[in-house]
Structure formats: C-alpha cells, structure tokens
Design a protein around this nucleic acid. Sequence first.
DNA 1: CTCTTGCTTCGACATCTTTCAATATTGTAG
DNA 2: CTACAATATTGAAAGATGTCGAAGCAAGAG
Lengths: 118, 118
Amino acid sequence: MSKQEASCCEPLSEGPLAEQQAAELSTMFKALGDPVRLRLLSMIASQPDGEVCVCELTPAFDLSQPTISHHLKLLRQAGLVDSERRGTWVYYRVRPETTDRMAAVLSSVSSERRVVTA
Amino acid sequence: MSKQEASCCEPLSEGPLAEQQAAELSTMFKALGDPVRLRLLSMIASQPDGEVCVCELTPAFDLSQPTISHHLKLLRQAGLVDSERRGTWVYYRVRPETTDRMAAVLSSVSSERRVVTA
DNA sequence: CTCTTGCTTCGACATCTTTCAATATTGTAG
DNA sequence: CTACAATATTGAAAGATGTCGAAGCAAGAG
C-alpha cells in the first residue's frame, strides 16, 4: 500500500492550508470550542425568525450576565454572529457565510482531497 | 447567578443542542481551535494514501518535536485522527466520521436559519 | 546485549481563558 | 433631568493551554 519508505522524512512541502488561513480559521473553530458558545450559537440558529434577544439567552445558562456577554462577543469577533441593537434590546443572528465556510473545510478534509482555499 | 426579571423574556427553554452533546462537540471544535492542529489535520488529510508519518509532519513546523506530538495527541483524543505504529514509525490518518459530524452540525446551523417574511 | 532513531510522556513555566462583581453605557419612561 | 432596565466593559482570581528540555519507551541494527 503505502511506501514512503526510503528516507523517512521528506519534509512534506506545504499542506494545502496556508499558515495565515489556518490562523484565521482556527479563530472560528476556537470560538466553538466551548460548550456555552456552541449552545449559544445553536439557540440563535434555531429561532424561527433567525434572531434572539440577549435577554432570552442569558437566563438559559447558570452563568452571570457579563459572562454570557463575553461569550457573545467572542462569537461576534469570530464572524459567527451579528448583533443589532433595537431599543434597549440587542438581537443576535447567525452569519451563515462563516458556518458554511467552516463546514466546507471539514468536508474537504474528510473527502481527503485538497482543502478549499477560502 | 442569572435570575433576570421576566419583563421582556421568556427564557428560551432548550436549544436543539443538549448540554452533553455540546460538551462533546466542543471538544472536537476546540481541537481545531489552534492553527498548528488545523494545519496538521490538513496535512494528514491531503496525503494521497490518507496517512502520514509523524516524521514528515514534525519538520514542517517551527516547533519542537514534543510539541507536535502533544498536538497530535489532542487531535487523537478529540476523535479527529487515528494513529498506528509500524516499525519505528507512527502513521496518522483522518477519521472522517468525526469531521463529517462536525460539518453536519455547522450545516444545520446555517440551514435552520430559514427566511420568514411575515 | 548495546546503540541509535522515532516518538511519547513528564515537569515546569509563561500565557491565555473563563468567570465573577463592580462599574459604565445606552436607551426608555416619568 | 432623574430613574430604571438591558448590555457591555473593566479588573482580578482561578484554571486551562502551548511550549520546551529532559527523560522514557519501543523497535531495528550491529
């Protein structure tokens, strides 16, 4: 089957994922690398009208309001959600471009061919 | 902790992502929340025969060999890769079940957001 | 057996994360 | 303007993470 025999280490030139792209993408994955943020995203995404008020998200967790606010900030900075203020309330919605891009990277990994240069 | 007034907000019972699932999935996303590990996965996935020797991965980074080994361990513990020893060398390959599952979660996030014009 | 090579584990340290209480900001109502 | 309600920001403490050098283990060669 596999015969990269000979000398074990030709340094494997460059993976299809460049250093800068990896840095950018890893920020997005890191944002979902926390159970609270994953559930936040899931809650936002599952709303029928595509958006949720922070005041609906906060009481769903056993965490302080500043903590939820901080997690939402990280999701926003990673490009996963958008926020809009309407009156006193702030509404969050998913940015599907970002989740789609992440899904594309993962799919290309499993199809073991070139990673999308997105 | 978080006991807000019920003035504006019905507390949004449960998102579709249960607490335990979120914990499990967040481990996988966290594993890709580092540029080194993302590039490692990408390198492993992009090999024609689906597997790479550690000795090919290590020199591609400006990091010590123990550090690469540690990152590979995290990828393995997250279920993203498998390793197999053959002689002196250890080969890593992607576990597509895991990347597929992550991609499915992300896709559902973006598709659950349906446009309601009402 | 001993030596060498490939890889993993251990111990330590600096940095980054998560979390909270306190405070600030923004918008609405009186 | 004052008061209040919803979010965000700040600052600090506890814990997790990334990294390295040193040591350990496994397998092949002599």
